[in-house]
Design a protein around this nucleic acid. Structure first.
Lengths: 142, 142
DNA sequence: CAGGATCCCCCTTGATACTG
DNA sequence: CAGTATCAAGGGGGATCCTG
């Protein structure tokens, strides 16, 4: 095995990402279609509900409030209600949320470095799949 | 805004994770229920199909072959067919795949450091939700 | 303004059976 | 051994309507 890359086995290999384990839960937390976008929208500071809705063009109220509730539950954002009329609610990243932003940064970093490779591999694979079927090799008896 | 954490805005904030953008595609690639497990199972070297199936207890043939095909398409694993009888197929991580393993490592790292905070926040939130409803504050006219 | 409640659809996952 | 094909189920996500 080449040693160009760090030995990941210290993290437990496949076991490190079993459904019941923590990295899986974290991955699921970041995985929602909108979670990353909401966190990204909060990087500059607190935002109000409809402010977020405008920033995340295309999100529905349901998904926005659902995503915000999940992030609040996970300690990623705080929800501050001002008992004014009309009501005002601010959402803001917690320190933990900003730390999670660092994780997103790592993903974006990796993506900047390797996404093109992935897409190139994808194109190559799809082209190969479009080619005519290769003739069957003569069977070699054991 | 505190500067304890790196400024993520250089990555484009929410825009950096829009559906059409690359980090989103990479996240989706890692996100599949079995992708991380398969990659983890391949860290030690090449594996055969049924070998992986045994390692990933609970995975169905369908999901395993589906996951492997997706990873092959993305250039994460290679598929090597030996035209013997019975047939033998080896799957192995590519350099790109091992690099992606580094990304998983970053996630596992963050998880080791912060997952407990997330779970604690989650418990606290759920307990608050179980409490009796707070009395409604008297409305303060504008 | 900030959501809650509903209905619905599609896509992923799973179970089962069959094949080269 | 290494898959593919088919069918059934469940949940995430979206559209819409309603409320304090």
């Amino acid at each position: 095995m080449d040693t160009t890359f760090p030995d990941l086995r210290q993290y437990g290999g496949a076991d490190a990402f079993l459904e019941a384990c923590k990295p899986r839960a974290i991955l699921d937390m970041l995985t929602g279609k909108w979670s990353t976008l909401v966190m990204g929208a909060l990087l500059d500071g607190p935002r109000r509900f409809n402010e977020l809705r405008r920033m995340l063009d295309g999100i529905t109220q349901k998904m926005l409030s659902q995503t915000l509730r999940a992030l609040e539950r996970d300690g990623i954002v705080t929800r501050t209600v001002y008992p004014t009329i009309p009501p005002r609610v601010d959402y803001e990243l917690t320190p933990l949320g900003r730390s999670a932003g660092g994780l997103l940064m790592a993903i974006a970093d990796w993506s900047n470095q390797h996404a093109d490779d992935v897409f190139a591999a994808r194109r190559a694979y799809d082209e190969r799949a479009a080619e005519p079927v290769q003739p069957v090799l003569p069977k070699i008896p054991i």
